[in-house]
Write a protein that binds this DNA or RNA. Structure first.
Length: 585
RNA sequence: GCACCCGUAGCUCAGCUGGAUAGAGUAGGUGGCUUCGAACCACUUGGUCGGGAGUUCGAAUCUCUCCGGGUGCGCCA
């Protein structure tokens, strides 16, 4: 794994600050942890690299920003040659602008090419285990397109962590116990009875999708009508339907290439006695007490029983109120089993936990984070990434998704129409905490407007250049490339240099995406890189000497290496996003 | 009522551990295929970064407040 040369500048700067100034501990830490102090200015008058570090730290070091800047400049100037610095200027209130010897870009291209398969990735995690939980939709029906967003975000985040040296477990929590499952069971019991025409008034149909009918028929077929008299009827239905629905869900996930390592069953947690065990830990630490909760505001239609109950002190961790862990009927709440579930993750050795949730669970964050802190004395952390809900439309008309009325936009529908790549990229081409409008008709009709094709097209165009070269040279470029020891001295055009600059920034993008958990930054970067490539291509249309394949064989080879790198970075970025990069389309 | 998220070009959105003239797609206008794939490119029109105040050398970015929209607020999961 190689880092961009920008890291060299960063480390030089960081060491300079650490070695020459007595930094307070907090400032020292801040300097150490800062990903990157260097920008590539949009305005070329501001040099090739610039930093505002002198202005950031002048106050903390009790110095005039321009004086601090001058000291930094002197330090860099002492190593001018090794750092390929042509000149450094201090501008405005204290910006430091670096003008670099152009050979740095040629060297950078060499570096990218030599490490093309893992350029930009570093071993940040050093084998640390991380548990990423995503989807975890109740097994009461198939997935719909709205579930996709969290699924894709979780899946991509897991890939990113893997690439950055973490040992990742991708997990799905199966809520196969509790009230909603009971509703599922009674819906199926209703359906079976209605097939037998023996419904009574007590029976209710709550979930009513096509799958309910299929499951009911299959159960009848397998167990005959005697099943309804069987004392274990509910258990038979429970097992059969959950198996069936889970199969549907796994099948849907497979269609958009979502992977999980572990499907963890809530029922197994119940049966294993881990819930009282986890609660006991909290009790011992004094986070559980008996008390009364106040009547919730504006929730008159909810029956609140006036009684003492077991509560978790989530207010200690910033929650609004303490939260119940047992119900009036003596059973545990969902929260209690979630505490036990996260305790189980911790028992399995994870101290870094990440959960992807829909924004409708935002109110649940404080109590869960609190419980994990309480369980582990703050040793383990759980990060919760909330993604805003997907608003679904069908030709501008909102679609209300409900497992109960069977008004779905299924994953099938969309995959069949536009394919998994388009769905995944669309879900990723927006930051997680912004709502996403998903219009089925628009997505299918205008699939070519999906930015995924723009990026894929750049990749395909590059490969078409190789196909051309292979044709005339009667050999394969990608097989030749390992023999090419070019120093890229002919790559000097500003348009070419710009694209090398952009590629040199890829490691910072990846690192930043990891630190902030913002996957969309990778998608935007790739779109931008593709744009620069398309521009370079058309530059060749306007100026024939700027085409990739030209008479000068040496220059042709160097240019092909350049675009080989562009394709390589697009490919490696798209791999993380789980989107394919065809060589022709 | 409380909490969280959002408010940036006509529309859909980037940019936010503060930085130099606010970016892209789309829509509107003008050009570019005898030559590596036009699913593309170049140029152009378009913005009180929701309003106001504060911190700062410097605010779309941080703080406060107000307005507008979304999502939650259960002994459901």
């Amino acid at each position: 794994m190689t880092k961009s040369f920008i890291y060299t500048y960063n480390n030089f700067l960081k060491n300079f600050l650490k070695n020459n100034y007595s930094l307070e501990e907090s400032v020292f830490k801040e300097v150490s942890n800062h990903i990157n102090f260097f920008d590539m200015p949009k305005n070329s008058q501001h040099g090739d690299l610039s930093t505002n570090v002198a202005m950031m730290y002048s106050k903390k070091l009790n110095l005039n920003p321009r004086d601090l800047a001058q000291k930094i400049v002197n330090a860099f100037n002492d190593n001018k040659k090794e750092l390929f610095i042509k000149k450094i200027e201090i501008a405005g209130p204290g910006f430091i602008n670096f003008y670099l010897n152009p050979t740095i870009w040629q060297l950078s291209l060499r570096d990218i090419l030599d490490n093309i398969n893992d350029y930009g990735y570093e071993d940040v995690g050093q084998g640390e285990r991380v548990n990423i939980e995503y989807v975890s939709a109740n097994p009461t029906g198939p997935l719909h397109i709205g579930h996709c967003r969290g699924a894709v975000i979780g899946d991509v985040l897991a890939s990113l962590y893997e690439r950055m040296g973490y040992q990742v477990t991708r997990e799905y929590y199966v809520n196969d116990a509790g009230g909603q499952i009971n509703q599922l069971i009674s819906s199926i019991r209703y359906k079976i009875k209605s097939f037998l025409s023996i419904n009574t008034e007590e029976d209710v149909l709550i979930y009513n999708g096509e799958y309910i009918e299929i499951i009911s028929k299959e159960i009848l077929q397998k167990y005959s009508r005697a099943v309804i008299e069987d004392p274990d009827c509910d258990e038979i239905i429970r097992q059969y339907s959950i198996d069936y629905i889970l199969k549907l869900i796994k099948n849907d996930l497979k269609k958009i290439n979502i992977k999980h390592d572990v499907f963890y069953s809530e029922k197994s947690l119940l049966d294993s006695g881990e819930i009282p065990e986890a609660i006991q830990i909290l009790k011992q630490k004094g986070f559980v007490y008996w008390g009364k909760l106040e009547q919730p505001i504006n929730q008159e239609n909810i029956d609140v029983i006036d009684r003492e109950q077991e509560l978790f002190k989530s207010t200690n961790f910033g929650d609004d109120i303490d939260r119940a862990i047992s119900k009036a009927d003596g059973t545990h709440t969902y929260f209690a089993s979630d505490i036990a579930y996260h305790n189980n993750k911790i028992k399995r050795g994870f101290i870094k936990l990440i959960n992807i949730w829909g924004a409708d669970h935002a109110g649940y964050v404080a109590r869960l984070k609190g419980s994990v802190k309480a369980l582990t004395n703050n040793d383990a952390s759980v990060e919760i990434i909330l993604c805003q809900l997907v608003k679904l439309f069908r030709d501008n008309k909102p679609v209300k998704m409900s497992k109960r009325n069977n008004d779905y936009i299924t994953i099938d529908e969309v995959v069949d129409e536009v394919g998994p790549d388009a769905i995944r990229f669309m879900m990723l081409f927006r930051k997680a905490d912004a709502p996403l409008d998903f219009d089925f008709v628009k997505v299918c009709d205008k699939s070519k407007e999906n930015p995924v094709f723009y990026v894929q097209y750049a990749h395909a165009r590059i490969h078409s250049v190789f196909r051309n070269w292979n044709e005339t040279n009667k050999k394969k470029f990608d097989e030749e490339i390992s023999n090419m020891s070019s120093n890229f001295d002919l790559i000097t055009d500003p348009n070419e240099i710009d694209i090398i600059k952009n590629m040199s920034y890829f490691p910072m993008v990846i690192r930043n995406a990891l630190i902030t958990n913002d996957i969309h930054k990778i998608a935007y970067y790739l779109h931008d890189l593709a744009s620069e490539f398309h521009s370079l291509w058309n530059h060749g249309n306007d100026h024939s000497e700027m085409r990739f394949i030209i008479e000068n064989k040496e220059l042709t080879q160097q240019r092909l290496c350049l675009i080989y790198c562009v394709a390589g970075i697009i490919k490696s970025g798209m791999d993380i996003l789980g989107v394919t990069c065809p060589e022709s389309m």
